[in-house]
Design a protein around this nucleic acid. Structure first.
Lengths: 217, 217
DNA sequence: CGGAAGGTCCCCCTTTTGGGGGAGGAGGGG
DNA sequence: CCCCTCCTCCCCCAAAAGGGGGACCTTCCG
């Protein structure tokens, strides 16, 4: 008997999974959580073999849950069930120990198959996800140009990304504006960009500053 | 008897809704669609009283379906069931004729209530959604600063947002660089921004250029 | 110990940017 | 018809930005 814990903030999803899994003879849904905060406690109490985990939830999201879970090696097998499959999230989730990463668009029998696979430590991936992993392993380290930057340069780039001028950056980071210029120049050179405007766009793309938080000053 | 059509690309969601609604005596699920493309045909064939519509779907999304549906006034009542509730989408969906806008986190009995309400033309909204609508009606037109801009200025701002310098913009838009400077100055003045970098961030926030398409040149 | 890398600041220089005018032409509405 | 907005380009000018040096310090590592 495979015991399963369902973690998803969507009521209909929980009901649907409970219904689908309940029809299998060898699978038993032992509990469900509507948010990430109570997952750790539920796992400790119920000792499920498999956790079906939603990615996007209010409060503590799936990645946060995985991070805390990763600490203990004897934990349950985790299957991520996501609404939208975003590359970085897939990578991060698997890095953090998830066995399978499925979209909610997946046919239910594949979900059931993933549960059975997880119980014995196997993965079930969709073709797109598998391809993504292959990609990653192959060009394992056409590394992010951003980690060419020194810590100080990264701080300066972050300030640029907020839309600040050199003088403001100097004040914010407690250095002379000549120093800021030095850092700006090496940032542009290292990233192959033409000017600070392109640097700001790059910073936003890299998520150095959230788009809706830039410019707020 | 209220006939319902379920439109959602998530298999588990469809199963869940079918299960939940199937337990009600006065509600009958007459069909389901896994993507937006077949919705129009399904409605024509099944003539449902109520459509439960997912927002994010591959191919044709919920808004696109609503847009096409809006053309015919004698259509079914539409309830949007969204994974993530984003303000602009709520407004747009309701503007396009949706009666209710519920998150999938909503308790299932509220969904059932929304179906019964929709059958007689009523709305069921969550508190947050209701508040949003009130907000909109109240400050009905603290308008977007972006429509202070003339068409030409908007084009220049868009180019800035891509990370281009004045000379490039002049070439791209077929004008002198002095003219570009004039437009840049009035853009900055009208938007109350300090320099082109802030203008680029603003343009990205406004969606003039998609973040992942900026800088690509 | 010597060297490399990072951080800080300085100088000089060119280019770009942005503000302040002005001026002509096209089109639109009172 | 005149006025207004928009688009276009021009000039001058100050500030900012960016490139190219160089200098000094610390820390870390072989």
């Amino acid at each position: 008997m495979i015991s399963v814990l369902i973690v998803d903030d969507h009521d209909v999803v929980r009901q649907g999974l409970r219904f689908v899994l309940g029809q299998e003879d060898d699978i038993e849904v032992v509990g469900e959580c509507a948010d990430g905060a109570r997952v750790l406690a539920a796992i400790a109490a119920l000792r499920p073999d498999v956790v079906l985990l939603d990615m996007v939830m209010p409060g503590k999201d799936g990645l946060a849950v995985l991070r805390e879970l990763g600490a203990e090696p004897e934990g349950p097998a985790v299957i991520v069930l996501a609404s939208l499959v975003e590359d970085e999230q897939v990578i991060e989730a698997i890095r953090l120990g998830a066995l399978s990463y499925l979209a909610k668009t997946t046919a239910v029998d594949r979900v059931v198959a993933a549960v059975r696979a997880a119980a014995v430590g196997d993965s079930v991936l969709e073709p797109g996800t598998a391809a993504l992993l292959v990609q990653r392993v192959r060009r394992n380290r056409r590394r992010n140009p951003i980690d060419l930057l020194t810590p100080r340069e990264l701080q300066v780039l972050t300030e640029i990304t907020r839309g600040r001028a050199n003088a403001e950056i100097a004040r914010a980071l407690g250095m002379g504006r000549e120093t800021v210029k030095t850092h700006v120049s090496s940032v542009l050179a290292k990233l192959g960009l033409a000017d600070r405007t392109q640097a700001a766009i790059f910073g936003l793309q890299q998520g150095l500053v959230r788009l809706d938080e830039a410019l707020d000053t």
